[in-house]
Design a protein around this nucleic acid. Structure first.
Lengths: 225, 225
DNA sequence: AAACTATTCAAGCATACAATTGAATAGTTT
DNA sequence: AAACTATTCAATTGTATGCTTGAATAGTTT
């Protein structure tokens, strides 16, 4: 029916569908998120900063390229990678990107260095970034201390439970850890563990006491569950 | 200067440049060809069935994504993969494609089966395909026999020199080997070696004698060099 | 059943891209 | 230097894509 030449052309066309699927920053971010586990459309949209309709459309494209599968679960639709091989592919793509694109390298360098020089950044700016979700702020003190008072939007991740949070964390999302203050080793240890696992982590040497002393807002957990 | 969120967005944008580079069938074919070794623009254009200007533009896109490098050599410009990692990436992409895209699978199946059932195909059709470059027809008899008379458009690839041709050959391009006729083992052996190396090879059991006997055209080398 | 929610669909607009064409470079041969 | 060759550049055209908006589905709660 079709000549061999058409088949050859067709083969590359099919392959190009995969290429097209990863030709959009938005879809790459969605894929990256999905590499870390199944998610609903809305959570993906929110995390990637897309409108829900837009995210849905991008997901449809990814689905069309057989990169992701979806499954209806009650009112939600769960998206997941169609195959672990998709994750491998994404990692290869990222590795190649980091290796070959000088611009990407520069960005990552800035990324890596930014948290280091956090001391220089105004604490208010940090707070704004955390609020926007650009940085994950973790409180590594025991849960009770967290409940008693913590920096707004900080997640409670007691040092002992840090390992169990690894799967949830994104490897390139900057993480800032804080604890009781400059003479407390909890955050130092947390950063060490996170970096060992490849996360971009930095320590904020101020603790809750210093924070409060500057007149910055402090949150209190109402529900102690 | 730029917020962390911008950096994150920028990272995926840079990554998407790689994606865009492999989002076109033409560029994928060019990449595939370049995986097998450096080539000039014209040879790439010809083999991929593109106009030279078009191929040049596609190559510029690949170059922009840092996937290929070019080097001026006299009047020619040689293109090559920028890094062996690019080849790895392409293989991963292809592997994923073959694994995930049902259509691609179907195509490959047809591809794989087509040469097998070559006996059923009219020899004239074969000739047309060879003429169009869809199939590579190789004559595995010693060079003298080839010169004395061969099927039009067949390449002379004496069995002894087969190995040295491997680098030039494309792994998915169907190859058909013929020799003296149904009772000659040259083509059988050639197919065995080609398949062992992953090429798509089939044997045509008719030889030059049978070909001529059917009244089909026979070519003669004028220049014996 | 009515109000709500998560998701998808459809239409519209602006932008980006692929292929074609003809001309411009840069190198080679005569 | 003139003719030729390989490659690139520039302008054009049609088509595909991404994002937005508002409505439609399908499931859930009241």
């Amino acid at each position: 029916m079709s000549a061999t030449g058409d088949l050859k052309k067709n083969f590359y066309e099919q392959l190009a569908r995969l290429g097209k699927a990863v030709a959009s920053p938005a879809r790459l971010e969605l894929l990256d998120l999905l590499c870390q586990g199944p998610r609903t459309v809305e959570s993906l949209a929110h995390e990637a900063g897309l409108s829900v309709a837009n995210a849905s459309q991008h997901l449809r494209v990814l689905h069309g390229a057989r990169l992701v599968d979806s499954e209806k679960n009650g009112m939600f639709v769960m998206y997941r990678l169609a195959d672990p091989a998709v994750g491998d592919f994404f990692q290869t793509l990222r590795a190649l990107g980091e290796k070959r694109l000088a611009e990407v390298d520069a960005i990552l360098r800035e990324f890596r260095e930014a948290p280091e020089s956090l001391e220089a950044i105004e604490k208010e700016t940090l707070l704004n970034r955390v609020k926007k979700g650009e940085i994950i702020l973790i409180d590594v003190r025991p849960a009770e201390e967290y409940r008693a008072g913590h920096i707004p939007f900080a997640m409670s991740v007691p040092l002992k439970e840090l390992r169990s949070h690894f799967p949830k964390l994104r490897r390139r999302q900057p993480i800032v850890a804080y604890c009781r203050g400059p003479y407390c080793v909890l955050a130092v240890e947390a950063v060490k563990q996170l970096r060992a696992k490849g996360f971009r982590a930095a320590r904020m040497d101020d603790g809750i006491a210093e924070w409060r002393a500057r007149g910055l807002p402090v949150a209190v957990s109402e529900v102690s569950k």
